[in-house]
């Protein structure tokens, strides 16, 4: 298991939007999946590019297996290619890295937005457009299970610390907690806005949701109209108990600090905001 470091690194290749990132090693390497049709491995802290996996489609989600021996990556549908899932060997030493996947397979239409290794690296679970989550056998690429847990695209999926459930963020204006073994929806958080990202506190039974109006429509209304606050819900009671303002564009991503004492939001407005939760948050009993 990798502990996320307490520094915040912003990586850009200057060309196309990065879609997802993943820490590797002792936080000395970073893997990015990008719309420029590459997956890259970077050296930290020099920021030097170490390796590049090239695809003919935009790359989206990347995830290392437990133990970091394999890398799972997803690609979007592009011209003739359907959406794809690719598994690579992940070499300890970058000189030994191969650009050829161990196995690749295709998925039904719609973006594959996030991927996770589960069940002792034997299976992958993925989140998709149309609100679908799927389970795959890593060795055969066979689809094992498919469940629609949302009414619209799942934009983000984050794993609980104990890896028993995920939180999904969807354009159906809700976030949900889903059991990873049964894909049963355990909790639903209604926001009335597009949810782009959702994170679970490692400290309390709290979740934080970020999102807002569709980015393409933001300019048409007042900044306030987008509802660009990060919103705190009680994980079990599904009730909202707080909002944190700051962004003037939709929030695209939220993440808790591993300590649960602060959280970070990345917005369409181009800002990354690190929010330190004040004393009240830790002392107040919200319900």
């Amino acid at each position: 298991h990798v502990d996320e470091p307490e520094t915040l690194v912003l990586a850009t290749d200057g060309r196309q939007a990065g879609q997802s990132i993943q820490w590797a090693g002792e936080s000395d390497r970073l893997i990015t999946g990008s719309a420029d049709q590459t997956i890259r491995i970077w050296d930290l802290p020099t920021g030097k590019e170490l390796f590049q996996f090239r695809h003919r489609e935009p790359c989206r989600a990347v995830k290392l297996s437990a133990g970091e021996r394999f890398l799972a990556a997803t690609t979007d549908a592009f011209i003739e290619s359907p959406p794809g899932i690719h598994v690579y060997n992940f070499a300890e030493n970058v000189e030994d890295q191969s650009a050829t996947p161990v196995i690749s397979w295709t998925a039904p239409k719609g973006r594959i937005t996030r991927v996770f290794w589960t069940d002792c690296n034997r299976k992958l679970i993925t989140s998709h457009d149309y609100g679908i989550v799927r389970r795959w056998d890593v060795e055969t690429g066979q689809m094992l299970q498919e469940t629609q847990v949302h009414e619209d695209a799942i934009q983000d999926m984050q794993m609980s610390p104990d890896e028993t459930h995920v939180i999904t963020a969807s354009l159906d204006k809700t976030a949900r907690v889903v059991d990873i073994e049964t894909f049963q929806v355990l909790k639903t958080y209604k926001t009335g806005r597009f949810v782009q990202s959702a994170a679970m506190s490692p400290l309390f039974d709290h979740v934080v949701l970020g999102g807002g109006q569709d980015a393409s429509q933001v300019t048409t209304t007042a900044a306030q109209a987008g509802g660009f606050e990060a919103r705190f819900f009680h994980k079990i009671f599904q009730e909202e108990f707080g909002r944190v303002r700051g962004h003037f564009g939709p929030i695209n991503t939220v993440a808790f600090h591993p300590s649960g004492r602060s959280f970070t939001t990345g917005g369409e407005d181009g800002y990354v905001r690190v929010h330190h939760l004040d004393m009240d948050y830790f002392t107040t009993k919200f319900f």
């Binding site: 589960t118 002792c120 104990d162 890896e163 028993t164 459930h165 059991d179 073994e181």
Partner: peptide, 11 residues
Amino acid sequence: RRNYAALQLDF
């Protein structure tokens, strides 16, 4: 889900 979680953790 405790057993499952423990299994994941040990892995």
